[in-house]
């Protein structure tokens, strides 16, 4: 699961990274956002959205994306 700060909510962590990259000579960087990655094995992948809604993400402030690998 990839969990990201919702669009429109101030993401100071992303901003700090965005400011740091040019300082190292990496130019042309924009729209940096820092989120979370949760990896897990699950028997029933249909449970994943509920897991995200109830615990892994806070839907008020975060979006989540589920990536399944067989």
């Amino acid at each position: 699961m990839l969990i990201r700060p919702k669009a429109g909510i101030l993401d100071p962590q992303g901003q700090a990274v965005q400011r740091a990259l040019p300082a190292l000579g990496f130019d042309g960087v924009a729209n940096v956002h820092v989120g979370r990655l949760v990896e897990l094995d699950v028997e029933d992948p249909e449970q994943l959205p509920a897991m995200c809604e109830r615990l892994l993400a806070n839907p008020l402030i975060e979006d989540y994306e589920i990536i399944e690998q067989a």
Binding site: L10, Q13, A16, L60
Partner: peptide, 16 residues
């Protein structure tokens, strides 16, 4: 807030 007893959420300080 996380438990839903209060509205809203708390985020990391704007200055980190």
């Amino acid at each position: 807030c996380e438990s839903g007893l209060l509205p809203g959420a708390l985020l990391v300080n704007n200055h980190l």
